Simulated assay, not measured.
Amino acid sequence: MTLTLWHIPDWASQIIRLALEERALPYQVRAMDWDAGDFDAPGFRALNPLGLIPTLETPDGPIFETAAILLWLNARHGGLGPAPSDPAQAAFLSWLMFVSNTVHPTVMAMIHPDRPAGPDASGEAGRLALERLVTQAAQLETLITTHAPLWLTPAQPALGHYIGILIRWAICLPADPALRFTLKPFPALTAILAAHEATTAARRLAKIDSLGPTPYTAPEAA
């Protein structure tokens, strides 16, 4: 069975598409259209009852949630992070969950501050979310400079691409330019993301999905 990714460019499914491309896995794309109601279609809801992407159809059945899909791909095909028997997997899992459960919601609060706070408090919610992301980026910066884990390099690219897409959104998507993130205080994180956006797979997808030549480090240049 060929893997099938339900996908909209530059949504969270982009993270999974990057992983598939990095491992040169055969897959097909099912294009989604939010405005057309595709997320509520009964056939899609049968695959993902939450009606969200990424959703990946696999020989083991459909999988949803970004971290879950990355872990399945790494366990089944390898090369995206430490192997289950590798002692480095303990730290990798901790930081993957940090990115999935902490950084990802923070960035979404920056992009959609009205969702957690309502329209009247959206400005303050966006400001607080930006403050949290700066703190979280500093934690990643410290991790890189003190430990330089292999699983944050393109040699094991899943987590780096995940972070890269989130940072891309935080730089570009908040409606108020004053509430957008900058990588300038984080040179080590910037270098890691530059290495990821320069991989052959990332460059190919950046062209296919119109993400620009520097989708993580300078997405505003696209």
Rank of each mutant, 00 (worst) to 15 (best):
Ile8Thr: 13
Ser13Asn: 05
Arg23Val: 08
Arg30Ile: 07
Arg30Val: 14
Ala36Met: 13
Asp40Leu: 11
Pro42Gly: 10
Asn48Ile: 04
Asn48Tyr: 07
Leu52Tyr: 04
Ile53Met: 09
Glu57Gln: 14
Pro62Asp: 09
Phe64Glu: 02
Thr66Phe: 08
Ile69His: 04
Leu70Tyr: 03
His77Ser: 09
Gly78Asp: 12
Gly78Arg: 13
Pro82Asn: 09
Ala91Lys: 05
Phe92Asn: 02
Ser94Met: 07
Met97Arg: 09
Met97Cys: 07
Phe98Ala: 02
Val103Phe: 00
Met108Ser: 15
Met110Ala: 10
His112Trp: 14
Ala121Met: 06
Ser122Asn: 03
Gly123Ser: 12
Leu128Arg: 15
Ala129Leu: 09
Leu130Ala: 12
Thr135Met: 06
Thr142Gln: 12
Leu150Arg: 15
Thr153Met: 02
Thr153Val: 04
Pro157Lys: 01
Leu159His: 08
Gly160Glu: 01
Gly160Thr: 04
Gly164Leu: 04
Leu166Ile: 01
Cys172Leu: 14
Ala178Glu: 14
Phe181Gln: 09
Phe186Ile: 00
Pro187Thr: 10
Ala191Gly: 13
Ala191Asp: 03
Arg204Ser: 15
Lys207Val: 15
Ile208Ala: 15
Pro213Arg: 03
Pro215Asp: 13
Tyr216Met: 01
Thr217Asp: 05
Pro219Gln: 06
Glu220Ser: 03
